[in-house]
Design a protein around this nucleic acid. Structure first.
Lengths: 229, 229
DNA sequence: GTGAGCTTTTAACAATCTTTAACAGTTCTT
DNA sequence: AAGAACTGTTAAAGATTGTTAAAAGCTCAC
């Protein structure tokens, strides 16, 4: 089995080396670069599976680097390390195509957890484990065609409806984190988008009301859970 | 049951005692040992959930101890305390199987933060095995659907109600430690959350009052016990 | 370009969930 | 026995979510 190759861009020498060693010990294949410029040079001639980029770096900062990376590769997961927990920074990061971000100071645990989460996610997406059809009680949902079938009646979903239902299905019987859903579907997780999401939840509930065993329940302050009992 | 048991190995008497007291105040069950040798002796005959090891100790240093511990238990999380921020040391630590490290001097908050990060992860890993239905006297409780049935009447519980009842059920006829419940459900175990929990206990008692054989009794200063007689 | 028909967001209000406050009762400590 | 700490219970305040409808955006044929 191939080791997962990680590009690490971090200007703090201690932290950089430390992270590199930690990732290697955890059996990843990690390359560490001291600034965005050097990282980018390596990126364009090497295959990486994941990028961990510090936001504040001399020569070329993390956001700029991320944008350049995205021009070449729209798929590769990017995790930002940011010293400030300022909301603006984080939003900026997501616009640059981040999959996750970690605020310093962080624990190795936390980093590892997020790395693994990101990898699980992309694995699923890539490996085609991504379902072309979900069975939800008596319903059948096809994300590709955005069709929801119940018996012989078919209902065409809108893009947002379909995206949200797909996320719920992918996390069936588990909590779909509100912010995660917002970040993946709406990109920006502000108040209005959150309300918009609530509206879509209400719509989906209406569509799914024929089968009482199917329910979308709210987990207060956390998110929603699609359950099939 | 419930209290998380921590093995603490630290040769500095002041720091060791301080850490032990602090962890206990934060309602962990902490054993402190003055060197690696003594710590190991206790480790092999006691169940611990987490190890915090100082790197520099007489008789047996932290790395050696960690390696020995790993021979017995590959899973238990290990956090190193290291005086030097020398990279070599930390790298050595990771190789010995560390899950995280903390450089001295560190704040108690920092330690706690990392301890809790580690615990959260292992807790998630362990949470796999769980019942889908509990019978409580004449009641039937389904944590997944958050439904509490009594005869043919069904009551939908809120998330917090359900989470708490689930913990009580998982520890039926045993004491559910107050702080354990708080940390599991409320994450932070402060005064207000404790009062909040009391409110929920009152609610659950109300829901369960139809069957007099079912009772939630308080164990003063310890927690609550769901009994079925 | 423009308007019909659709999708999505915003607004508004109702309902629900959780926390906080307040006070009464209990158990422990000294 | 009296004070301190802990628990029981109810109600309020605060926050989140449910739901519907109107407003704003978008698309595409004309």
């Amino acid at each position: 089995m191939q080791k997962i190759k990680i590009l690490l861009a971090e200007d703090d020498e201690n932290l950089g080396m430390l992270l590199r060693e930690y990732l290697i010990v955890k059996s990843y294949d990690a390359d560490w670069f001291i600034n965005g410029e050097k990282a980018y040079k390596s990126f364009i001639k090497t295959h990486y599976d994941l990028c961990i980029l510090d936001v504040m770096m001399p020569v070329k900062d993390g956001y700029t680097l991320a944008k350049e990376i995205r021009l070449t590769n729209a798929e590769i997961p990017i995790i930002f390390l940011t010293a400030k927990s300022l909301k603006e920074d984080i939003i900026e990061g997501f616009k640059a195509g981040a999959d996750d971000y970690i605020c310093k100071p962080f624990s190795m645990e936390e980093l590892l957890f997020r790395v693994e989460a990101v990898i699980r996610r992309t694995r699923k997406d890539a490996a085609g484990i991504q379902q072309s059809e979900y069975k939800i009680g008596d319903y059948v949902f096809s994300p590709n065609t955005q069709l929801l079938r119940y018996g012989n009646t078919e209902h065409k979903l809108t893009t947002k409806e379909s995206d949200l239902l797909k996320l719920l299905c992918a996390n069936k019987n588990m909590i779909l984190d509100r912010n995660f859903a917002l970040k993946t579907i709406w990109v920006d997780d502000n108040y209005f988008n959150a309300r918009s999401m609530d509206v879509y939840i209400a719509k989906l509930r209406k569509y799914l009301k024929e089968d009482p065993r199917v329910q979308i329940i709210n987990v207060h302050g956390k998110g929603f859970k699609l359950i099939e009992s």
